[in-house]
Computed example of a mutant assay.
Amino acid sequence: MSGTDDLVTYEMRGDVALLGLNRPEKRNAISDRFVEAIHDAVTRASSEAKAGVIHGHGTHFCAGLDLSEHSEKPLFEAVKGSRRWHAVFDAIERGTIPFVSAISGAAVGGGFELAAATAIRVAETNAFFALPEGQRGIFVGGGGSVRIARLIGPARMGDMMLTGRVLDAVTMEAWGGVSYVVETGEAVDRAVELADRMAGNAEFTNYAILNALPRIADMSSEDGLFTESMVASLATMTPEAKQRLKDFLEKRAAKVEAPGG
């Protein structure tokens, strides 16, 4: 099945929704229509799935903003367009289900911003990351100054923007912008595996992780600790948590084991 204007394909694998960016002839560059297609697919996934994966059709994840469209926008239209990106990407970052991005090829500019909105980023060894806004005479507008800067730090983000530096997947993992690096052709399968694992979590806990953690990061330590106590108490009161804890205490749930154990 497909999303708006076939710009985003949609597929269910069990409890996981796969959203495929489907503009390969443009390296999946994002236009305003594309943003709305992403919104429609994310909204649908949030109502039908327990986790989601965002990937790119063709050889690239997403080469960023469609500059041919952006260059013709009046000032206020550009502001409104950026704010729309913020709203759509926020529904990915702080929505009701977690998303994983499966990255191959380019994750450039707005493509990196989209990936940064997902909870986990899986990159193939052929993936590369860049923020060429300095060379284009523009500035990030899809939330990168917040999301990417928090992942890799503002100094490293500034380096990328000022110099046009292009990073490979392994370096980006070391910088904190990528969660997992896999061989070429394996990102989608690995992302689905991770999403399926997250889909098995308690629904309220997933929601709290997506929505409480980033807000706590914005708070003072005392406010954050207070909020943590409230969220932790609410989580243990849900019927699902009570059943899961009972299953563990009665040895129907597996213990945490050491890696490789």
Rank of each mutant, 00 (worst) to 15 (best):
A119D: 11
Y10W: 06
G58V: 09
G81V: 03
R197Y: 09
F128T: 08
R121Q: 13
V146E: 15
C62W: 04
F129D: 07
L249C: 09
G164P: 09
W85E: 12
D15K: 13
D196R: 10
F89N: 07
H60T: 00
N22T: 01
G260H: 10
M157V: 13
V53Q: 08
P214C: 01
M219N: 10
D189I: 00
Q135H: 13
I120P: 08
A49Q: 03
G64P: 02
G109K: 07
S71D: 12
S233L: 02
M237H: 10
G58P: 14
T4Y: 15
V182C: 07
E69S: 09
W175L: 14
A41Q: 09
A202Q: 13
M1P: 00
D15Q: 10
E250Y: 15
T238W: 00
G95A: 12
P154N: 03
L7D: 03
N126E: 06
M172P: 07
R27M: 14
P259G: 05
L245Q: 10
H55C: 11
A155P: 02
K255Q: 13
R244V: 01
R84A: 03
I148V: 15
V53W: 08
G3R: 08
V231F: 00
R197S: 06
A45E: 01
V79S: 06
G224S: 05
A51V: 09
G111N: 03
R121P: 02
D32P: 13
P74R: 09
L65F: 07
S71P: 07
V108H: 13
G144T: 11
S233I: 02
A49H: 03
R165D: 06
S71N: 14
T43M: 00
G164S: 11
T205C: 12
I54H: 03
L65Q: 11
L21C: 07
E77W: 06
T125P: 08
S31D: 14
R197D: 04
A155R: 12
V231T: 03
D247Q: 05
E69M: 05
V100E: 07
G111R: 04
P214E: 02
